[in-house]
């Protein structure tokens, strides 16, 4: 799921609307500031019963429904295009399919680092694509070997894509079967 910039603004606006509505009901119930006494319900009823108001409500319903659907579905992740274009000269043009690179990087990391269950995903960056590798660490691993293996993977990507059309990020997570061992080790 993607995060939208409108989420924060929308959540804040809806929060204010809900807070105001709740405060109005509390004032109606407990008569704290007397706003309810000053409310002209006759005028509200007259407006709602007016012929034009039904059309306005219909229009508002359509607009609200469209905005709600857009807000709901705009967060569905968009597929990232498979290829990136490498720097070219003259009439030559080379496109690289990044989908074919990710499995090699996964394999390379799994073989060189004390990790397992390596997964990958791709996202767009300003200069090309970022391949995100995610792996579960072996609890017997040490920091140096993890860093060395990650450096090797990053160096191979840098060597293949010196203009940073493809970059790699590695996230190391906890072991998958963490806490399964119930018997304490006895030396």
């Amino acid at each position: 799921m993607r995060t939208l910039a409108i989420d924060r603004v929308g959540a804040a606006l809806l929060g204010l609307v809900l807070l105001a509505a709740g405060a109005a009901v509390v004032d109606w119930r407990f008569d704290l500031v007397g706003a309810w006494d000053r409310l002209d319900t006759g005028l509200i009823r007259e407006t709602v019963e007016a012929d034009w108001f039904a059309w306005a409500a219909g229009g508002a319903a359509v607009v609200l429904a469209v905005v709600a659907l857009w807000w709901l579905f705009a967060r569905v992740p968009r597929p990232v295009e498979s290829g990136v274009r490498l720097g070219f000269s003259g009439a030559d043009r080379v496109d690289v399919d990044v989908r074919s690179i990710a499995p090699r990087l996964r394999e390379s990391l799994e073989q060189s680092a004390p990790v397992d269950h390596v997964t990958s995903s791709r996202s767009r960056t300003g200069t090309g694509q970022l391949v995100l590798l995610r792996a579960n660490v072996d609890p017997r691993a040490d920091g140096e070997s993890l860093r060395r293996a990650a450096d090797d993977v990053a160096a191979s990507v840098e060597a293949a894509f010196p203009d940073r059309e493809v970059t790699v990020r590695i996230l190391i997570d906890a072991p998958r079967r963490r806490g399964k061992r119930r018997t304490p080790r006895v030396h």
Binding site: M1, R2, T3, L4, I6, D7, G10, A11, L14, V48, A54, W55, A57, G58, A60, A61, V62, L64, A65, V67, A68, L69, W71, L72, R75
Partner: peptide, 22 residues
Amino acid sequence: TWFGVVGALLLAGFAVFAGQHA
């Protein structure tokens, strides 16, 4: 992000409310 989803559903609820009146 999650409140954005709830907000979208609330807006859809308001749309149904307004549409029912129309």
